[in-house]
């Protein structure tokens, strides 16, 4: 009885625990372009961008289109709790953005303030810009 009661109350607590949620990333006006999986770091990433970014990435131009906005959203992944043999993204780790100004110069921004990971230090911003620009759209 006691155990049953404890289990029940534990269950009820979990149900009521609303500090955790199922997050669907809202990219605003940006569109999903591509994804990647990094097994070493156990991360998955989704790249979003605007029309200018699509031009830049799909054409593979060395000169980025002015007004390009790219956003790379990285998540930790886990074994899928509902299916052995599958993995699924879990904790949101970082949101990185690349902006290309009118002069064609790309700048990098890491938004990590409210995120779970402490990956605030970016060793080489130019490397990250190059990496983010290496994706090809799947559409």
């Amino acid at each position: 009885m006691l155990l049953g009661g404890m289990l029940l109350s534990n269950c009820v607590d979990k149900q009521k625990n609303d500090s955790y949620t199922r997050v669907v990333f809202d990219p605003g006006a940006l569109k999903f372009f591509a994804s990647s999986v990094n097994k070493k770091q156990e991360t998955m990433a989704a790249l979003y961008g605007n029309d200018k970014a699509y031009q830049t990435l799909s054409k593979g131009d060395s000169i980025s289109a002015a007004g390009t906005i790219l956003r790379l959203v990285t998540w930790r992944y886990h074994d899928n709790p509902q299916y052995t043999g599958g993995t699924i993204n879990g904790e949101l780790l970082s949101v990185e953005s690349v902006y290309v100004n009118e002069a064609g110069k790309a700048s990098y921004e890491l938004e990590a303030s409210a995120l779970q990971s402490e990956t605030n230090e970016v060793a080489d911003k130019q490397e990250r810009i190059k990496y983010i620009m290496s994706y090809k759209p799947v559409f």
Binding site: Y20, V24, F25, G28, A29, I69, Q82, I88, G90
Partner: peptide, 23 residues
Amino acid sequence: ASTGYLFDVPLKINRKGLIQKNN
């Protein structure tokens, strides 16, 4: 069955209030 017959529903492991930037 627990997720209404869908696999790949986002896991409930992120804290509320994460930044979500709009454009």
